[in-house]
Simulated assay, not measured.
Amino acid sequence: MKLTKQHAFTKEEIAIVFDGQIRNFIHQTALFFVIPTKKLNFRQVLSLKSMRRLFTYFFAIAFLWSSSLFSQEIPTNDAFTFGEELNFEVSYGWLNLADAKLQINKRSHTQNNRPHYKIDVFGKTKGAATIFGRVNDNWGTYLDTNTIHPSVFYQHIEEGKYRKHEKVSFDQKNKKALVEVFEKDNRTLKSVKEYDLPGQIQDIVSGFYYLRTLDLENLEPGETVLIRGFFDKEIYNIKLIYEGIERIDTEIGEKETYIFSPQIPKNKLFRGDYPVKIWVTKDQNKIPVKIKANLFLGSLNFDIINAKGLRNN
């Protein structure tokens, strides 16, 4: 759809924008419409990220937390254990878009002759959101139980007709990452390429669990944590700003939380200088209970709905 009228929003136009943001959150298509106005160039503003980009980027912000602020070489894990499961509901305003789950397998898995946590993140559309295209995504990591660094990362992306299957094998000692990309059938190897790493690194799943092993008690408001991770063949370096402590109500009870805001490059998808906030419980478990992103119109929310198998009760 293309409208060329130059004026302030009408209710009908707002509805179109709302629908377009949902479609771009859910589906793979790059651009559904263009609506120029006096205040904003909608051609730029509404060329929103696809579901693959937005959902993945959101998880990257939330879970890719590898910090140079802390000097622990081998962290002590008192925060999580085998069998933990965290479930979230993803919503846009009043519309429930998807369910998300973070799950640690109940048993140890061996990689490179060492015990590992097998951790999976699942994202799946539900209800009315499936009208715009079904999404069933899975990101996973094998996390060394001793070093809390990943040995293997994998992703299986199913969004409409789009498919992506990838495996990354990390050589943390020699600072290398071997990326294997598979065809849509997830059997035929499509490409293999090795990448240099700047040092020990996290993936978008393992980074969050690494953060949970660190001592956050001494952080002062305004301090920054450096995010460094490897994803989609790129090194990510993002500053995470600590804002302080807040007590909030959640589906699993009232929780005192740490608040973080990632510094995000300027773009037309998010609104404001620090559009995303993450609430992490101020207890031994350090689990995320809420994530909120202010979009161009409205906000996207991840809210915890239940937590099972926590290490500390």
Rank of each mutant, 00 (worst) to 15 (best):
K2Q: 06
T4G: 12
K5Y: 13
K11R: 10
I16F: 09
F18G: 02
G20E: 12
N24T: 06
A30S: 15
F32M: 09
I35R: 03
K38L: 12
K38S: 15
K38H: 11
K39D: 09
K39W: 01
R43Y: 12
V45R: 13
L46V: 07
K49M: 12
R53V: 11
L64G: 15
Q72I: 06
Q72W: 05
F82P: 10
G83N: 00
F88M: 02
F88N: 02
F88P: 00
V90G: 00
W94M: 12
D99Y: 11
I104N: 10
H116Y: 07
K118L: 13
I119N: 03
I119H: 00
D120M: 01
G123H: 05
K126E: 11
G127E: 09
A129H: 14
F132Q: 07
W139P: 02
G140N: 09
L143N: 05
H149I: 09
F153Y: 14
Q155H: 10
I157V: 13
R163L: 08
A177W: 00
A177C: 00
F182W: 13
N186F: 12
E194C: 08
P198Y: 00
Q200K: 15
Q202S: 15
Y209V: 01
Y209M: 03
Y209P: 08
L211M: 15
T213N: 03
N218A: 11
T224M: 06
T224F: 02
R228M: 07
D232V: 06
I235V: 15
I248W: 00
T250H: 02
T250A: 05
G253A: 08
E254L: 01
E254G: 02
Y258Q: 03
S261H: 06
S261V: 09
P265L: 04
K266Q: 13
L269Q: 10
G272L: 05
Y274P: 02
K277P: 04
N285H: 02
K286R: 13
I287R: 01
I291L: 12
L297D: 05
F302R: 00
N306T: 08
L310W: 03
